[in-house]
């Protein structure tokens, strides 16, 4: 059995290839083109890398965060469902899933039966994702890695109060003109902490139930993770490929569908 799960994110598109033993391949592409084109490219890449033909794939399951269509997929699923299934696949006892992506933070909590209990996404007017860090890194002429590395040099953080990326940028710039300006590492540590604090604040809307899985591309950032762990006050799971959890979930939904339909040909809920 070979299943492909695709997550068309706002910036990057992710793919996971699943067979009977588990995940065999992951791929990520960051190109700004039509969803179909990006999906076609990433599928092609995956097939080539694994010397497979399209016919040898049993099912392609896709999810799109930008609302674009996914004509390439045999089955389409929503973001929450994919995130939920992907997280459960990795950690069967997880109760809160926090996905910090480029544009948004998505939080899902699970009930005792490990079904979706509540969910939330950040408010439109409050940058709740990696784009917040990216925009500021760009303005400062640093790479994300450099920025995180510099933030890790200090334990002290300077408060960045603004929730808005643009306001935060101005706040940071204003520190540069303070006399004397605070150490840059502390400002940057504060910046990462500010995103973490916002993400943790968002959990207040659904209530954290431990254990928590932190995933999404931003959870690769050590300075962010450090602040997040400091603030969350619950056991935190991390995973080696956090940006692929949604794509994994899509693939898992496909696998379950095939397994179910083998058992009962009429099951069609996709679960």
């Amino acid at each position: 059995m070979k299943i492909i799960g695709i997550d068309i994110g706002s910036i990057a598109t992710k793919l996971v290839l699943l067979n009977d033993t588990g995940v065999v391949y992951r791929e990520s592409l960051s190109i700004s083109e039509r969803s179909e084109t990006v999906a076609a490219k990433i599928i092609e890449k995956a097939l080539q890398a694994n010397s497979l033909s399209r016919d040898s794939i049993d099912l392609i399951v896709g999810t799109s965060r930008s609302g674009g269509d996914a004509p390439f997929a045999d089955m389409k699923k929503g973001l929450y469902m994919c995130l939920f299934k992907g997280a459960l696949e990795l950690f069967p006892d997880v109760k809160t899933i926090i996905d910090v992506g480029a544009e948004n933070t998505t939080i899902v909590t699970l009930d005792k039966e490990s079904q979706i209990k509540d969910f939330t996404v950040n408010d439109k007017c409050a940058a709740g994702g990696g784009v917040f860090l990216e925009a500021i890194a760009k303005a400062m002429g640093l790479s994300l890695d450099e920025m995180a590395a510099e933030a890790m040099k200090t334990e002290k953080t300077i408060d960045i109060a603004s929730t808005c990326t643009i306001f935060a940028e101005q706040e940071i710039l204003s520190y540069a003109f303070e006399d004397p300006p605070p150490p840059r590492s502390e400002i940057l540590a504060g910046l990462h902490e500010s995103l973490a604090s916002r993400v943790v604040g968002l959990t207040g809307k659904v209530g954290v139930i431990p254990p928590v899985l932190l995933c999404g591309g931003v959870s690769l950032n050590p300075a962010f993770v450090r602040s997040f762990k400091k603030l969350i006050n619950a056991e935190v799971y991390l995973t080696e490929a956090p940006q692929f959890v949604v794509a994994l979930g899509a693939a898992v939904i496909g696998r379950n569908y095939i397994l179910n339909s083998k058992e009962s040909p009429h099951a069609g809920s996709g679960n």
Binding site: D123, A126, D159, I160, A161, S162, T163, E171, S194, S197, R198, V200, G201, L202, T203, G204, K205
Partner: peptide, 10 residues
């Protein structure tokens, strides 16, 4: 002073 309002925002 302007402080982060993350708890209040929720």
């Amino acid at each position: 002073s302007e402080i982060p309002l993350d708890d209040a925002n929720s």
